[in-house]
Simulated assay, not measured.
Amino acid sequence: MTKPICFIGARGGSKGVPRKNIRLLAGKPLIAYAIESSIKSNIFSHVVVSTEDKEIARIAEKFGAEVPFLRPKKLATSSAGMAEVIIHGLKKLFSMGYDFDTFVSRDCTVPFIRNKDVAGSIRLLNQKKCNAVFGVYRQHLNPYFNMMELDSSGFLKLVKEKGKRPASRQTAPIVYQLNGLFTYKTEKFFKYGKPLLPNALPYEIPAETGLMIDTEFEFQLAEMIVKKKILKLD
């Protein structure tokens, strides 16, 4: 069995936090955390970054990633789907002679994913009859209990209603938050051509390691975590 590859997508544009993927987090570009962690794990045959941005490519290579191609700019817009980005990347890699039947898609805006959870997701994928394994954590914001949306008249209603509203969050159905860890069987990804494959299993991780940086506040929070060494990142 061939080793899996790690696939990291990182475009140059970012609306929430400008140039987020290469902004310094405690003195190191954000993307470097995912790259260095993945290389250190010895899980992967290759750690590959897909980007259209030459500066991101240069920084990714500096920290040890491979950037064997530049992504077309049409796949680097805010409207471009991750499925198209991954399919393009996988096809390019196969055309270049890369050999793998499993891959892990890591989001570089989720810098604290632990390698033991990456390895666990791969192990689960190989042990169970499933197409993919998604890193998740249990979410305290619950659509059955405390998440609301507007109805057609502009009034608040629960996102999901299941008869009587649960008496407490603890008694509501369990829901999961996706984060930046997606482990796939390559043939199944090509078959369905979308990130959320059917017959996917959850792999629970600690909520704090799934912090996703989409806002300035989350960036500051991540910086505090690194500087104060709140998490053990190995």
Rank of each mutant, 00 (worst) to 15 (best):
V175W: 02
V175I: 14
V175S: 08
Y176W: 13
Q177T: 09
Q177N: 15
L178W: 05
L178N: 13
L178K: 07
L178P: 03
G180S: 03
G180L: 02
G180E: 01
L181P: 10
L181M: 10
L181Q: 11
L181V: 06
F182T: 11
F182I: 03
T183V: 15
T183G: 06
Y184T: 04
Y184C: 03
Y184G: 04
T186R: 10
T186A: 15
T186P: 08
E187S: 12
E187Y: 09
K188V: 01
K188S: 11
K188Y: 01
K188H: 07
F189S: 02
F189P: 03
F189W: 01
F190M: 01
F190C: 07
F190K: 01
F190H: 02
K191T: 08
K191Y: 14
K191W: 05
K191D: 06
Y192A: 05
Y192Q: 03
Y192K: 07
G193T: 11
G193S: 02
G193N: 03
G193R: 14
G193E: 03
K194H: 07
K194Q: 11
K194A: 10
P195G: 05
P195E: 13
L196Y: 14
L196C: 09
L196G: 03
L196R: 06
L196E: 09
L196I: 14
L197G: 06
L197S: 08
L197T: 05
L197F: 09
L197I: 12
P198I: 09
P198V: 01
N199P: 02
N199I: 02
A200H: 07
P202T: 06
P202R: 11
Y203V: 01
Y203T: 00
Y203N: 00
E204I: 13
I205V: 14
I205F: 00
I205A: 04
I205P: 05
P206C: 01
P206E: 10
A207Q: 10
A207Y: 05
E208W: 00
E208S: 12
E208C: 12
E208Q: 09
E208A: 13
E208P: 08
E208L: 10
T209R: 03
G210N: 04
G210E: 03
G210R: 02
L211K: 00
L211P: 02
L211I: 07
L211Q: 06
L211C: 00
L211W: 04
M212L: 12
M212R: 13
M212Q: 11
M212C: 15
M212N: 14
M212D: 04
I213M: 06
D214Y: 12
T215Q: 07
T215D: 07
T215E: 08
T215N: 13
E216D: 15
E216I: 13
E216W: 14
E216H: 12
E216Y: 14
F217K: 13
F217L: 13
F217A: 15
F217P: 01
F217N: 14
E218V: 09
E218M: 15
E218G: 09
E218C: 07
F219T: 06
F219P: 00
F219C: 01
F219V: 01
F219I: 00
Q220S: 02
Q220W: 09
Q220K: 15
Q220L: 11
L221S: 12
L221Y: 15
